[in-house]
Every structure is written in C-alpha cells, then in structure tokens.
Amino acid sequence: MRYVIRSPEGGYLNDFVVVRTRTVTLNGTYVGTESDLHPTFKANEPRLALKFDTEADALTRIANVDPLHGGPEAFKGCTVEPTEE
C-alpha cells in the first residue's frame, strides 16, 4: 500500500513546479543551486498522483518544513489517503 496527498479542493499532489532557481556560491565558488517550488494538485485520481512509500513519508511532506517549498501553508488542509497500489 502506498499513500497520496489530497488537497481540500479535491486534487491530489502530482508535482512541484520550480518558480525560481538561484545559484549558490561559497567564497566565490559554485556549490550548487536552490529553487523555490510550489506544489501542484492537478491529479484528479490517486493513480495519477505522487505516491509515498509510507504514511509517515506523506505526513512529513505535508508538514513541509522547507520554506523553499512554500512552507506549511502550501499544504494547509491537505490529508493523506492510502491507495491500493
């Protein structure tokens, strides 16, 4: 059994969309990039959604402590549902 995240509007989490990417440097040396992402809930059935291995993994995703991913507000009211997959 795997788990999906459902928004209050009814759509299921299907992706994160990058809205901005920045280059990260340390002492002038390139060390990577970081991106601002927003979740999208465009899957109209669980089959088309992102699947999480365990319920805990999905709940961690909803807690969304990473501000780069929109913070907890991005998942306000969302619930975790099991799938038969």
């Binding site: 994160f16 990058v18 991106s35 899957a43 992102l50 699947k51 999480f52 805990a56 993994d57």
Partner: peptide, 24 residues
C-alpha cells in the same frame, strides 16, 4: 522531492510512479 530531485525528462510526462520516502 518532485521538481528538485525527481525530474520529468519532458514536461508532458505523467507523474512518476516511483515511491517517495526515507526508505524509498
């Protein structure tokens, strides 16, 4: 995280079926 670590080769791809998680 989709969009950061798990990327679609093409934007029109369906959502990946991979299982996401700390033991996945």
């Amino acid at each position: 995280t989709a969009g950061t670590h798990l990327l679609k080769q093409n934007a029109v791809n369906p959502t990946s079926d991979a299982s996401l998680g700390t033991s996945a």
